[in-house]
Amino acid sequence: MGALLGRLGEAAASLLGVCTLVFLLIHLVPGDPVAAMLGEGARAVDQAELRAALGLDRPLWTQYLDYLGGLARLDLGVSLHSGRAVTALLAERAGPTLELAVAALALAVVVALPLGVLAALHQGGWIDRVAMGFSMLGAAIPNFWLGPLLILVCSLWLGWTPVSGRDGPLSLLLPALTLGTGLAAVLARMVRSSLLEVLGEDYVRTARAKGAGPARVLWRHALRNAWLPVLTLLGLQFGALLGGAVITETVFAWPGLGSLVVESIQARDYPLVQGAVLVIALAYLVVNTLTDLLYLALDPRIRSR
């Protein structure tokens, strides 16, 4: 219980830190942020107007309190480009990104878990070598190459899937495959090495000495321990996916957070950039806190610390 509260307290502290950093982001722009937003040669009147609209003419600490107040009301300001509320824009894009992240992760886990387990159980055999060969390949192929290749084969030659955009479940397949491949490659390796380590542990020998069969040893003893380091990796990777896979989303014109970040930076839409960064950081924080809590549930040794 103490460990749980402690972990949640830490998460709350990190959250405040993230918010503060995002707030300061706009002030870190070299020179005058307003000039940077409007571009060179903007009229002084327009600059003053924007500065007042953004509240940049007031003292820093009032701006900070206003900003925190806005956060509490889920008000992240207004996009300079479209004039719409930043929260609304983010909400629109968060759904597709979450969809893509979950699909990619599910794909990766479904492929990597059996692959890693099989490779570990047949260490040094041909299954192991083939599996690790694929894993090496998967990790080495960059997304900006795999994405277009999949489009070329599946959409243009075979005509199975839409080329790009988000239109029905079939359109999710290629971006998820692109993102999932690299993830599956890393994950399979991790599963394999973690399981191999656990299979060499004394308590696995104890289980065998009790007369437990290979299936029981694997499921009841080995995998439950081998999971733990894999989980950490999974949490980190999922957090990164939620941040929006910038390259993959751009290649497939997927309307997620990643492409929103690219668009807003190009448009110098600072309130939107700020909002997007906040959401991405938040996603990371939430996923990693959840991972830690899961760890607490799975590993009794951490619970009592």
Binding site: A209, R224, N225
Partner: peptide, 14 residues
């Protein structure tokens, strides 16, 4: 059979 290292011979998550 019982082993030398009781510290590592029991499954830590059971």
């Amino acid at each position: 059979m019982i082993f030398q290292e009781p510290q590592t011979s029991l499954n830590p998550v059971m």
